[in-house]
Design a binder for these strands. Structure first.
Lengths: 193, 193
DNA sequence: TCAAAACATTGATATATGTCAATGTCCTGC
DNA sequence: GCAGGACATTGACATATATCAATGTTTTGA
């Protein structure tokens, strides 16, 4: 149980068997069926989740009620509305399952307790946050400095699994494009090679 | 010396006088004149910096050589190309001074050593990264879900000091707009009230 | 197994923003 | 103190992308 979670953990920080057992006490498994919600806008995000299996998306609704996908999460990725989790404020994000999912949840109290009693956990979180920040930064600089075509090609290169498993209009939404524009972009790219 | 740095630190984690003295050993002061560079694209970012006084900007050059400002930093803010600092890869960002600056630098070796020997430093960095991630996320969701006008009003509300101290065309660049478009947006807002 | 929904594509048109250019003002450094 | 540059504004025009609509295909669920 929790194989993916601990595989990811061990990539950053080695844990002994006892430590694994110890951490497991603080984790909760959760299954989610396709289209079910993990979090809805306005609720407080009570858990950080790690995807063991399946796929999630996070999206925000704009003033016209349009969905804008802010993130996908596949196996091994972390998902949640971090601001809501940390500050215990209403979430801006909606998170739902794109496929049937198996998740690992860390509650706020578990998070706080683990940070307090287990330095290796704090180190792991520090690294996780650093990596997440760098990834977001990278996305932002790509968004700013690349042409549409280059952005799409970079996305395919970076996240080939997402392109395979997620409908195209959601990728368009994630890139801030209409489905039509992405479709035309793709046909331009195909005709060119 | 390093007043701003330790004020910020103490807002998150209380330090004893001895701890302050200890941390000071790892810090280096640096002055920068307006328009001088702290970091240039292609170089490796050897230091994380905290602004004691003055203002910095970070920008990236796109394929046409156009500048796109990715961040500003005023007193108390942290600045650097984090990916370059952590991975010791060539930086994508250019960082220069918008005003004469006084900075505090933390070198990579100081960063690693402090993380190793001082749990409070690791906790501080963990919180810093978490906050930075949340702020970037917030910017991204604003970018996605708000109209231009709302984005500009949100920016003014959030960073009134930047609006006062930074030329308008740089704010346009930071918002991903041409200077003309921001100018027209502002005149629209003014005529309306 | 079939009907309905979800999805991708393509065309016609609308619109927001960028680009180019001209003008005037205000800094700023020599 | 003045000249040149940086900056903001405004107008005319170009262009990329959104929007609306129609069509065909694939997936899904009863």
């Amino acid at each position: 149980m929790y194989e993916v979670f601990f595989r990811k953990f061990n990539e950053k920080i080695q844990l002994t068997e006892e430590e694994v057992t110890f951490v497991k006490q603080y984790l909760t498994p959760k299954k989610l069926r396709k289209k079910q919600y993990l979090l809805q806008e306005g609720d407080i995000c009570r858990n950080i989740c790690i995807v063991e299996k399946g796929a999630l998306r996070a999206y925000i609704l704009d003033e016209h009620g349009e969905e804008h996908i802010t993130a996908f999460a596949l196996e091994g990725w972390t998902m949640g509305d971090l601001s809501s989790f940390i500050k215990e404020e209403p979430a801006m994000l909606n998170i739902d399952a794109l496929e049937d999912c198996e998740l690992v949840l860390i509650s706020k109290s578990a998070y706080i307790e683990l940070l307090k009693v287990m330095p290796k956990f704090e180190t792991y979180i520090r690294i996780l946050m650093t990596d997440a920040y760098m990834a977001l930064q990278k996305n932002m600089t790509n968004m700013i400095s690349l042409s549409l075509e280059e952005r799409y090609k970079a996305f395919i290169r970076m996240y080939p699994n997402i392109v395979q498993r997620v409908p195209q209009h959601m990728i368009a939404s994630h890139m801030g494009l209409s489905p039509e524009t992405l479709s035309r972009l793709r046909s331009r790219l195909n005709s060119r090679k």
